[in-house]
Design a protein around this nucleic acid. Structure first.
Lengths: 306, 306
DNA sequence: CTGAAAGCGCTAACAT
DNA sequence: ATGTTAGCGCTTTCAG
């Protein structure tokens, strides 16, 4: 009787439930930029998985600033989120704000970018080994000298990608001092364009460029082509992350596909699981490594074209 | 004394406050796909503005499905969001779920895509007039016949873009039956590629293509080039939305830049304002039209190149 | 096994 | 002006 009346259009008040249980059924997300395809795809995975498990997601952007990131963490803490998934800002000098949240018993898990010194659950990709694989592919084309355009080496993912490239050189018995030029840049199209032009102005010699993300690879390719150099005939070009655009430029660019959506889903699964198990005292931090995949396209193939 | 002790690290419990005030200080967002650049950019604007005003944002994707959209609305209602910003799904046949929320006194505002039959606040762009402007630009190049690739005409934005194109023809005194070919497609790269090839197979004649989004324009351009036709020498190609990629393909594509971030910010301002004024009974729905901007690139310029 | 009662931590109304 | 108290609607506990 009452039951039926209730079933008609009874809506339990989540606010009251949240207060009583001290749980918000909400997961906070912090990413550098929502508009980057990798992150929006990861968020898409997080959103799907979270909703399936009855959790909401609150989104924050750090704009790659530690200050904003700290603010975001405060916002999320005061919203009483049950956990935080974060891909931290570039400048990871200070990690207090993250420790603060953890100390307050709010789980903070990393996805993609991560901070080694903080012991918590992480869901990352095997950037190092795929970067190595890509470099071996470049070396197999008898290149004389390879330029690497990398980002801030304090960012885990860039550090690992560089590490992989070095490993490939060492494994192949090549001298990295002779055959490798390292350039740290802002990994975007404009800066890559500028730096490659500078390198050419300075008569640096190289016949392959491995940029640590696709936008930088595209800027590189454009710079080379504007100077009359052909890709891949004169210089090979490779990127990283498999942005949509990387297969649409001419020639399409060899890159590494990262399972962004799966990373998001996996991180969410780990988090939800942790939240549910937390009460039972089962706390263990683990690092999950998802496989990324080398995608070879025309920009690094001298013989056949995709 | 106590004050100081409290100031040290007192964190008011938002959950309790929310229950007491019956407000969540949260705005719900529903978009078709987070991963589309336009939407992630709009969300970025919403996030910034909302946080500035002390509101959180919960994000949902409808995947362009009315069922999922209805589910999202339920999720947001049960989360007791103070308002919902929505860019509705393609198939807007049923609008009950949106009406339900409005009837329950939860404000639902539209941004970008919108449903005319629902009377509420809307923040949109002047697609029609910019589409007209773009078409006039094409007509000024003495084209003989223009093909329009459009999406579902029940979607407000596509309908308005087509309307603008028609207006340009009429204003110029051209007969749309002779000079205009309309093709309704799925507005993505692959479908555009397929349809343009079909049109060429069927010996349809046209020397300009206006695709109602950039990805379709890129598919069009690729199809034309693969058949040995030159852009812009043989066929002009124009798109819509100014995706990042549209200026990176070869030739760069003429398109319309929409102020995605500003749309998000404006919609959020209207919503926050409404939420604050609601108690005072000041309810008025208004439609704000933001200006978009024609960006002419090489794909539609026979004389000079950008 | 069903039903009443206490309490989560705040805010708003009321009384001092 | 300041201090006290009731109550938001759930969940959990405790009594019947």
């Amino acid at each position: 009787m009452q039951d039926k009346a209730k079933e008609m259009n009874y809506q339990p008040n989540t606010l009251a439930s949240n207060l009583r249980t001290q749980k918000s059924n909400t997961i906070g997300i912090i990413v550098p930029h929502i508009t980057k395809y990798f992150f929006s795809t990861a968020i898409s995975g997080i959103e799907e998985e979270a909703h399936e498990q009855g959790f909401n997601v609150i989104i924050c952007q750090s704009k790659d600033s530690v200050e904003l990131e700290a603010k975001n963490i405060n916002t999320l803490m005061s919203s009483r989120v049950d956990g935080i998934l974060i891909s931290p800002a570039i400048e990871t000098s200070s990690v207090e704000h993250i420790q603060t949240a953890i100390n307050r018993n709010i789980p903070v898990f990393f996805f993609d970018r991560h901070i080694d010194s903080i012991s918590t659950t992480k869901v990352i990709t095997d950037d190092r080994s795929t970067s190595k694989e890509l470099t071996l592919h470049l070396l197999s084309q008898n290149i004389k000298r390879m330029a690497v355009l990398t980002g801030d080496q304090s960012v885990s993912i860039y550090k690992n990608r560089v590490k992989g490239a070095f490993e490939a050189f060492q494994e192949s018995g090549y001298n990295t001092e002779d055959k490798l030029i390292m350039q740290q840049i802002h990994l975007n199209m404009d800066d890559a364009y500028r730096v490659v032009n500078e390198m050419l102005d300075n008569k640096m010699e190289f016949d392959a460029v491995f940029a640590m993300n696709d936008m930088a690879a595209i800027g590189t390719q454009k710079a080379l082509q504007d100077r009359g150099l052909r890709v891949p005939e004169d210089v090979l070009v490779a990127g990283f992350s498999n942005e949509l655009i990387s297969k649409l430029v001419s020639p399409p660019i060899t890159t590494v596909h990262q399972p962004a959506k799966e990373i998001g889903k996996m991180a969410t699964k780990k988090m939800v699981n942790y939240i549910k198990e937390k009460d039972k005292g089962l706390i263990a931090s683990e690092t999950t490594v998802l496989e990324s995949k080398l995608i070879i396209r025309a920009s690094t193939q001298r013989d056949k074209v995709e």
